[in-house]
Amino acid sequence: MTEARPIRVLVAKPGLDGHDRGARVVASALRDAGMEVIYGGLWLSPEEIVTIAEQEDVDVIGLSSMNNAHMTVFPRTLELLRERGLGDVLLTGGGIMTAEDMEALGRMGVGRLFGPGSDMDAFVEYIRRWCETRARGTEGRGTCPTA
């Protein structure tokens, strides 16, 4: 009788720049797609992002980076995720960045990244697919690693 667990996503906007309209729009779209969205807000550091991911046991982290910090924020977050045993969490997101940067981040292990004006449906669909594929590949989420 265990129902399917909704996909849990942390949406946050790291870095120092101003508003979070974009991140809120993304959060609402994911919620409307049936996901549980933990809204982390603005100005989070990679350390804070990974701490939240740990406590909330999310499947996916979506970061919106608009201030050219992506080449530091994404790799650092990824590094911390791996260090702290959260290597199975999808790190994705978007922002203003060149195709080369996206590719470079992809090679490091970051998921697909979406430029400004990307189709929200494509983002939702990408997350859904990724989680489906993983669910088939592994035992599934919420399985206690230590019990």
Binding site: P6, A27, S28, R31, A33, G34, M35, E36, Y39, G40
Partner: peptide, 9 residues
């Protein structure tokens, strides 16, 4: 939708 926006934190 079964979704939720969890904004307390």
């Amino acid at each position: 939708t079964g979704g939720a926006l969890l904004g307390d934190r």
